[in-house]
């Protein structure tokens, strides 16, 4: 089992971070939509945003780690069966995920810290406010946070559809190789 990526296989670290972030991001999206419409007297009125912010900060930290990781590791080569437009679209989608995630994390942080208050990270530490750029900061950041999240959700659907297409129609290794490292074939 390889920890790091190879030319044709994702390693454990890439696979774990992909799936941990996938679960957290989908959860955060659903929680985000759910929490903004909560009734004032709901039991979750205060707790839901608290969890959203803590997990959001966790995703931010994972994102930073992931970017550093991706830059410093080998990217498994596209399968031979991929068409060149497929590779292009996948690249754009993957890069868009990074950019959108970055935007979503920053804008989310800017909503809660707009008036200088810190964000509590799982009752462990307080992440302090740094930037206060405008009186409308919370509104502007809120708009951006929401729009970027919906674009990301759309790209997520595209990403999932592409996975299914590769797995069930093309019957290739696309899904399998992000599930577990591929055993090296032949004498590489």
């Amino acid at each position: 089992m390889n920890i790091a990526n190879t030319k044709n296989s994702y390693g454990i670290i890439s696979i774990l971070i992909h799936w941990i972030m996938a679960v957290l991001i989908v959860g955060l999206f659903i929680l985000g939509i759910y929490m903004v419409d909560l009734d004032y007297y709901s039991k979750w009125y205060n707790a839901a945003p608290w969890w959203h912010k803590s997990f959001g900060l966790l995703v931010s930290a994972l994102l930073l780690f992931r970017i550093v990781w991706v830059i410093n590791t080998i990217r498994p080569a596209p399968l031979d069966s991929y068409k060149s437009w497929e590779i292009k679209v996948a690249r754009i989608t993957h890069y868009s995920f990074y950019i959108l995630l970055f935007v979503i994390c920053i804008s989310g942080y800017l909503i809660s810290t707009a008036k200088g208050a810190a964000i509590e990270f799982f009752s462990l530490i307080d992440v302090p406010a740094i930037i206060s750029f405008s009186k409308q900061q919370a509104d502007i950041a809120g708009e951006i946070h929401e729009i970027a999240a919906y674009i990301m959700a759309f790209l997520f659907l595209l990403h999932v559809c592409a996975t299914f297409k590769h797995h069930f129609i093309d019957k290739d290794m696309t899904l399998l190789r992000i599930l577990k490292p591929v055993k090296p074939e032949g004498d590489e």
Binding site: I111, S112, A114, K115, A117, K135, A138, D139, G142
Partner: peptide
Amino acid sequence: TKSVDSNHAERDKHLR
């Protein structure tokens, strides 16, 4: 009305 201020960024956003 945009200037509403209750010393809490998230609540003020909600009030707006």
